[in-house]
Design a protein around this nucleic acid. Structure first.
Length: 702
DNA sequence: GCGGACTCTCTTTTT
DNA sequence: GAGAGTCCGC
């Protein structure tokens, strides 16, 4: 694609006011945004720094800047871009005091958020079977997605407990801890715009044009964020595709994009449709269209292919997840032999857990791969510990950081001691780092006294901070014996954790050289997903493994969608939810299919171990009825059931070489001694030693 | 206060 | 099947 097509050109050159760009998958969406920004700068004379681009991930923001740089040179650097969360944090760093927060507040991650809520419920003697912490968090998040503060939310009673009251208390505790959770960033940024007139005026005057990507995935509070920010000039360009809305669970509301034309009362809205797909072969698009066609409540559109030819997508039915992984490996190896680089291949899955079997097999096969996402780097225990130490040295630690490492490694400060420390720190009214200085001078009593050596060490390390490129990280971790204490995890795990700490160290060194302040570093750690920023130097080409959600906005020559089964895609949780949930799962599959440029493989397994239990999923309802001329299905030979590890369960339909078809009624014993009772259609009830029975599984239990 | 052994639970997706 | 929470003996 060299020139812009007509629709793209129209969108790029559209004038002021709200603009809606409905852009199908692979229709040159990013290209259109980049060119529109370029056009605003070059033709309208808008200053780059007065343009704001909101992207869905930090990676997308970086890519946007890169492409803008290619298009218009250095000027592109001035455009402000980032996620809702990152931009909100930026605003709040400047204005948080207007909301009663110190400007030095920090972000709390979901893990610590959960701990906090648990402690809160425990203190109130609310058992988890009466009110589950996750339920409360879910409800609070739900309020926040809608932009509702505790006093605006509707009272919600749950087993006689007022959730709204708990929400209020949770917020009070966060405020006291000087922390905001992820959703607070957005809500509080909106509060600046809603409640503080001077700041609202300043923020509204800050930008002349705002552009938003992946608009179908905005939730109501993000929507309010945008409309308030653009209340003056209405220069809001939104780009999105309702068929790719996959964040309903995060409060995203497709109506924002479906009804975009109606929410601007009296203001003309420009609408542009990009339906020509430049990415995928017609065979892949045919499957994509067939899958999404069944969803109702969408802007009906059809992606029009612009490319020629193509290989028909394949659906490979495998025996289990390992068979699946091996078949995928073989498939990708063949692609590799055809000259496709590893980095141009991706394996996408519904649930991060699916990466386990894939990883094992890829490692066995010596295929280079990288996992994007999963357990976030900055959420790892050793990284959070290390960063807490680091924050203390660099004077940007708060009570949570201190309490995290107060007994790491063991200093004889147990639960009681930690309470004491917390109480004394609280009573002192000092910041955590200052309080440690105070302890270093010999103050403090009880458990706090035991912190004196740590406090003095911090003072000593701080004195030579300017000689340490990592700003004291390794020195602290070595001198406190934290590194040594990792050995308690066992040799192997200790090494991998140390490796992670080394990665953090080099990341700190590189970042701090850019002139970033410690608190800015902490912000990045809080909001950056691992794999977004690092791996820049990873020159070697690797197969990409990631969740379908992570894959949004990306494209690959060859794509494998693993685990296309009922229970995984659509996910069981969505099946339980019903219609809305299933429609979103279908869009998820659509997103996955449309990531592929040339070659697409779907796989499913007949049996799969989930949480230690064997499951016998049916093929995904989304592809079951797709015509063979659209999707070519290949079945693996069934495997003999010779061991209990194959995990028959009561209700499984099986077939036996001489007895024929039957249903498992009972399993007794274990291991080699397992006996199975099967009611056979032809010969009735038989009790068999599973070991010798040579049963084949036919259907899953209901 | 610590560590080991045990039980129990909870299993989607992400900023 | 992993992680968190709990109990118990030192």
């Amino acid at each position: 694609m060299f020139e812009l097509n007509h629709a793209q050109q129209q969108a790029v050159e559209a004038g002021d006011g709200p603009q809606l760009i409905l852009a199908g998958a692979g229709s040159g969406k990013t290209r259109t945004i980049v060119h529109r920004i370029g056009h605003l700068i070059a033709a309208h004379g808008t200053a780059p720094h007065r343009i704001l681009a909101v992207t869905f991930t930090n990676k997308a923001a970086a890519e946007l800047k890169g492409r803008l740089g290619d298009l218009i040179g250095d000027g592109g650097g001035g455009v402000m871009s980032g996620t809702f969360h990152a931009l909100s944090l930026r605003f709040l760093r400047r204005y948080a005091d207007a909301l009663g927060y110190p400007k030095s507040f920090q972000v709390i991650d979901s893990d610590d958020q959960r701990t906090l809520v648990k402690r809160m419920l425990k203190l109130r003697n609310i058992a988890s079977d009466r009110l589950h912490p996750a339920y409360l968090i879910g409800w609070i998040e739900h309020c926040k997605h809608a932009g509702l503060l505790p006093d605006q939310a509707e009272t919600q009673m749950w087993s006689g407990i007022d959730l709204r009251e708990l929400y209020a208390e949770y917020q009070a505790q966060l405020l006291q801890l000087e922390r905001m959770d992820f959703s607070d960033l957005i809500v509080n940024a909106v509060r600046l715009l809603r409640e503080i007139p001077d700041i609202a005026v300043a923020l509204r005057a800050r930008f002349d044009h705002v552009l938003v990507d992946e608009y179908q995935d905005t939730n109501p509070v993000q929507h309010e964020w945008l409309t308030l920010l653009c209340a003056e000039h209405h220069n809001l360009t939104v780009v999105g595709d309702d068929d790719q809305s996959i964040y309903g669970w995060r409060g995203a509301d497709v109506r924002h994009i479906l009804d975009f034309e109606h929410i601007w009362a009296g203001i003309a809205v420009g609408t542009h449709r990009l339906e020509e797909n430049y990415r995928s072969t017609p065979s892949i698009l045919k499957l994509a269209n067939a899958v999404i066609h069944d969803n109702s409540n969408r802007h009906v559109k059809t992606l029009r292919p612009t490319r020629k030819d193509g290989i028909k997508p394949e659906w490979q039915v495998c025996n289990d997840e390992y068979d699946e992984a091996r078949k995928i490996a073989r498939f990708l190896n063949a692609r590799r032999d055809q000259g496709v680089a590893w980095r141009d291949m991706a394996i996408l899955y519904r649930s991060n857990r699916q990466s386990l079997a894939l990883e094992q097999v890829l490692r066995q096969e010596d295929m280079p791969y990288q996992i994007i996402g999963g357990v976030g780097f900055f959420e790892r225990l050793e990284i959070k510990d290390a960063l807490s130490f680091w924050a203390l040295i660099n004077r940007c630690a708060d009570a949570m950081h201190l309490l995290r490492i107060v007994n790491k490694p063991k200093r004889g400060i147990g639960l009681k001691g930690q309470e004491q420390v917390a109480a004394q720190l609280g009573a002192s009214g000092m910041r955590a780092s200052d309080w440690l200085d105070f302890l270093a001078e010999g103050h403090g009593e009880g458990a706090a006294k035991k912190l004196q050596p740590l406090a003095q060490l911090i003072v000593r390390v701080r004195a030579k901070l300017d000689q340490l490129e990592d700003y004291g990280l390794m020195t602290m971790l070595e001198e406190t014996s934290y590194i040594n204490s990792l050995q308690s995890f066992g040799q192997l795990e200790a090494e991998s954790r140390l490796e992670n700490i080394r990665t953090l160290q080099s990341y700190i060194e590189i970042t701090m050289q850019e002139g970033v302040t410690p608190i800015e570093f902490m912000d990045r750690a809080a909001l950056l997903q691992s794999g977004e920023e690092d791996n820049k130097d990873a020159e070697q080409s690797q197969v990409n493994l990631m969740s379908l959600h992570r894959a949004k906005g990306l494209e690959f020559d060859t794509v494998v969608l693993a685990g296309v089964e009922d229970g995984l895609l659509p996910h069981q949780r969505a099946l339980d939810e019903g219609e809305t949930g299933i429609a979103e799962e279908r869009r998820l599959l659509y997103v996955g299919i449309t990531r592929a440029e040339n070659v697409l493989l779907l796989t499913s397994a007949r049996q799969r171990k989930i949480f230690g239990d064997m499951h016998f999923p049916l093929p995904s309802r989304f592809i079951k009825n797709i015509a063979a001329d659209t999707l070519h299905c290949k079945q693996a030979n069934t495997v003999k059931m010779t061991a209990i590890s194959h995990g028959l369960t009561v209700g499984s339909s099986v077939s036996h070489p001489s007895f024929g078809e039957g249903v498992v009624l009972e399993l007794e014993g274990s291991g080699n001694a397992t006996r199975v009772s099967v009611e056979f259609e032809r010969v009735g009830l038989k009790r068999l030693m599973l070991k010798y029975a040579a049963l084949k599984v036919k259907y899953p239990p209901k």
